[in-house]
Amino acid sequence: MASPLEDRLDWVVRQVGSIILGKERAIRLALSCLLARGHLLIEDLPGMGKTTLAHTLARCLGLHYQRIQFTSDLLPADILGAAVYERQRETFIFHPGPIFAQLILADEINRATPKTQSALLEAMEEDQVTIEGETRPLPEPFFVIATQNPAYQIGTFPLPESQLDRFLMRIELGYPDVKAERFLLEGEDRREALGRLPVSMTPAQLHEAQALVAGIHVAPPLLDYLQALLTFSRESGRFRGGLSPRAGLALLRAARAWALLHRRGHVLPEDVQAVLPAVVGHRLHPGDDHLEQSTADLVSQLLNAIPLPV
């Protein structure tokens, strides 16, 4: 079933993996998120390679890349752009902001004010921005990687649940293992290596891959399984509020992308299980009786609780 496109995707995974060492799973999740036309939230400590991952993906996929550092004095216009008067032409000329790029890294998104956050999030939802009455489409593809620092919450504006829901996945990178770290320490500067990285895929090919995701087959037993997961999250009492229908759709879309990335024309339960923690982790909260357990524990309980249909 292998086709040049899937080989190419594999190639992307390997290329990115040569820069972000020992994080193949996170890379694949990020790529699935992109293929599923979703946005990605990376929650991790500084220095774990969040920016490098975003940058590498942009480079490998040949996407126009912009980084926006969120600060508490960042204004919506700083992201979206503004019309500026040009004396020579005696008219207002629109100067597009950094959001008019194909891949945006919104660094430390929770440090900006809610107003600025929502400017970005609305753009993410609608794939277009409206400035001074004029609607401007965003480039295609449009992919946001936002990062959040979980440790220092002072002076931040945590994203409300409804905004978190707009991210298809939330992942953590985590520390590299000993071998990868050693390789990192011994090896050359990541930035230089990144600069030498060849472009592995054109935007057109990416678009084609995204179209393929929608065509990945989903069999009735898989839907049974998916629904059982959703029902359990709603009725088991372990979560405060179960998964929404939107979460169910997100899960399915992510599982399709994951299946494509693993060269399959159909979704297996394993695909759902692989993307589940990343897709539902930021959408679920422990119920009153389970406050002492982490969401990650509960999600793994959710996985273990539902038997596969035969």
């Binding site: 297996l268 394993e270 299980q273 273990n304 609780a305 038997p307 596969l308 035969v310």
Partner: peptide, 27 residues
């Protein structure tokens, strides 16, 4: 299809390799 798979799983279960109820075929 299901019967074959069940036979396969049952055989492995007898050898101490029981499939977890949530374990997919590839896993």
């Amino acid at each position: 299809v299901a019967r074959s798979w069940q036979r396969f799983c049952a055989r492995l279960a007898r050898r101490g390799l029981a499939r977890g109820p949530h374990e997919g075929p590839l896993a």
